[in-house]
């Protein structure tokens, strides 16, 4: 691990000010991704700013019926929070589908948003990678592509975003709260993560000098019709090949409002609000679900090793929409898929 200095920030303003003075510094929260990447020499900060003392652990109700989750609330704290379980069960379910209890106890909400791809070429400094070393090339293209993108990839990068939590937050239209040296701003969740394009080194639209301080969720009517369906190479403690966060509001057998986001298929949680809007009013039945799947995957492209993901995603979307419509969300404990 490259050597670095250590500073503990006591306030948000303090943290942001220290970062402004140290261009190679990084914030450290739970450490479950950053410390790992530092061990592999993929991340090489010269200074670590420990933000664990900042007052950002609370999960609080907002006057408009929404919730605000502090950036330092652990993944476990969010998943088992009574308000989250009752009003945003899709989020709780997605978090419990990811990682292990040990990692969820340490990992934070802000850190989950900022975790980096698990592309094995990104993790291996002996191979070229445009995300790790801009301009060096992409060893994944033409390499082993089983875990890679089928949507939104570029000729510079085919990596996927690894988070489960973020797939649910995308479906729920969350808002990311960030603070910079001069001001605070909100970023709509759909604008937070980006596609690789020509700059795969940029995972998201957070500015270099900003800190994520929290996530806001608006009240919704999806608690009765939602599911998080995750398909992976083993039944627990593995990253998604394909995952689907689905939520809907149904009246008289018809979809009133539809949300669907995919994980494991692109450089960011994949959502297409135009497709969702198109099927508002459609009957909540298999024919509709198959059409939604076709539309979402219309531009999907395999790279050889991941061709199977297109059919897997199509079937997962139909299955997830069926689960959501019938009010029988996927259990994250009993692994059989109904």
């Amino acid at each position: 691990m490259k050597r670095f200095t250590y500073t503990r920030a006591e306030t948000v303003a303090d943290a942001v000010a220290i970062l402004a003075d140290r261009p190679q510094a990084q914030f450290l929260a739970g450490g479950t991704n950053l410390v790992d990447l530092m061990k592999y020499d993929v991340e090489r900060p010269d200074a670590i700013i420990d933000i664990n003392s900042l007052p950002l652990k609370e999960i609080e109700e907002l006057p408009d019926g929404g919730l605000r989750i502090g950036a330092l609330a652990s993944n476990s704290a969010v998943a088992y929070n009574a308000q989250i379980q009752a009003r945003f069960p899709l989020l709780a379910s997605a978090i419990l589908a990811g990682a292990s209890p040990q990692l969820r106890n340490a990992a934070t909400t802000g850190g989950n948003l900022l975790q980096r791809t698990r592309c094995s070429y990104f993790y291996d400094p002996s191979t070229p990678c445009n995300k790790r070393e801009p301009g060096s090339g992409c060893a994944a293209i033409g390499g082993l592509t089983r875990m890679h993108a089928i949507l939104g990839a570029s000729d510079k990068c085919i990596a996927v975003h690894p988070s489960d939590m973020c797939v649910a937050l995308a479906a729920l239209d969350a808002t990311v709260e960030v603070v910079g040296p001069d001001s605070a701003r909100d970023i709509a969740f759909g604008d937070f993560h980006r596609l690789p394009g020509d700059e795969p080194q940029r995972d998201n639209t957070l500015a270099r000098d900003e800190l994520v301080t929290g996530i806001r969720l608006e009240a919704n009517r999806f608690a009765g019709h939602h599911t998080y369906l995750k398909l992976r190479d083993r039944l627990s403690y593995a990253f998604a090949l394909v995952s689907v966060a689905a939520a809907m509001e149904i009246a008289d057998g018809r979809i009133v409002d539809l949300r669907i986001a995919l994980g494991g298929v692109a450089h960011r949680p994949w959502r297409d609000p135009l497709v969702e809007a198109e099927y508002a009013g459609a009957p909540a039945e298999d024919v509709t679900f198959q059409r939604v799947a076709d539309r979402l995957l219309f531009e999907a492209k395999g790279l050889g090793g991941n061709d199977f993901k297109i059919l897997l995603a199509r079937k997962a979307i139909v299955r997830a929409l069926r689960q959501a419509a019938s009010g029988r969300p996927q259990s994250q404990t009993l692994k059989a898929i109904q």
Binding site: D50, Q102, L103, A106
Partner: peptide, 15 residues
């Protein structure tokens, strides 16, 4: 009291 992976925790953060 919470289980965590000791390999991913920098000791200095555990004051």
């Amino acid at each position: 009291g919470q289980r965590m992976n000791a390999c991913l925790k920098l000791a200095v953060t555990l004051e």
